[in-house]
């Protein structure tokens, strides 16, 4: 029985895309690398202690919880103390860019899928594939398009972290009670008015849960993406694995956990604050 050439077909397609379009993606990479560098430098411009105080202040302002602010303060101080400050900033920058990109693509797709059955039917199976495909697989095609480094990492992260943003945006809008949608219609609202005055406000908590998931997935992917040269905290872990340095591996791991907890708590509160 002949073997179905699935893998070689995909390879051929990607080869074709790479030969014809990689000049564009590589140019894009050069620009993005600069953006990332400026952003990192901007965040590193402040002395760490000042940055930490400001971030702790912002978390308090967003959550109104002393506990979370204190955890932020102590957690970030610990990271600084472990000598992981630059790596952490680098990781946060990547997560920031990747999740903002993922959200700005994912949320509109989620809205479209919720409002249009046809879109929904196309999107759902794609999402299933995206979510079950092992994360590492995304790293492979990222390299020929974007080269080794941070931009490839961002590309893989965006794809990996986007599904929950789409799914939960869609779910949030579909969960708006039918009678309320009917009511908005009965009062002569057009599509946009219905979306912005009713569906999005009511879907916000669910959408924020999606944002939270996207950020968390983004963080985990950015760490994995250290394998293709994303550096940051993941890079520290990766180096520790290669050199079998258990201590510094755990230190970097703890740093990731601290960043994850801070992001999660803050985002949860932003999502549920409005009643």
């Amino acid at each position: 029985m002949p073997r179905i050439p699935l893998g070689s077909t995909i390879e051929a397609i990607i080869d074709f895309l790479v030969t014809h379009f990689s000049f564009l993606t590589i140019a894009f990479t050069r620009i993005m690398e600069n953006v990332i560098r400026y952003l990192e430098n901007g965040l590193l411009f402040l002395p760490p202690w000042l940055f930490i105080v400001i971030v702790a202040g912002i978390t308090f302002w967003l959550t109104r919880k002393w506990g979370i602010a204190l955890f932020t303060l102590l957690g970030l101080l610990l990271i600084w103390n472990m000598g992981l400050w630059v790596a952490t900033i680098s990781t946060i920058t990547l997560v920031l860019i990747a999740t903002l990109t993922a959200l700005s693509i994912g949320v509109p797709i989620g809205i479209l899928a919720a409002l249009n059955n046809g879109v929904n039917r196309v999107v759902q199976p794609i999402l299933d594939v995206m979510q079950t495909m092992p994360a590492f697989v995304y790293l492979i095609p990222a390299i020929p398009f974007f080269g080794l480094g941070k931009v490839a990492a961002i590309f893989a992260t965006v794809i990996f972290s986007m599904p929950p943003a789409i799914r939960l945006t869609c779910l949030g809008i579909q969960q708006v009670p039918r009678e309320l949608v009917e009511c908005a219609d009965a009062f002569g609202s057009n599509k946009w008015q219905k979306l912005f005055k009713l569906q999005l406000p009511l879907a916000t908590p669910t959408i924020m849960a999606g944002v939270n998931q996207t950020v968390m997935l983004g963080l985990s992917m950015v760490v994995i993406a250290a394998m293709i040269g994303a550096r940051g905290l993941g890079g520290e872990v990766w180096r520790a694995i290669q050199r079998l340095q258990m201590g510094s591996g755990f230190e970097a791991g703890i740093g990731i956990v601290i960043v994850a907890i801070i992001l999660d708590r803050v985002l949860q509160h932003v999502g549920t604050k409005k009643r």
Partner: peptide, 11 residues
């Protein structure tokens, strides 16, 4: 129009 379950906008 007035609805059975009021259909007020909770937000």
């Amino acid at each position: 129009m007035v609805f059975q379950n009021f259909a007020l906008f909770p937000h």
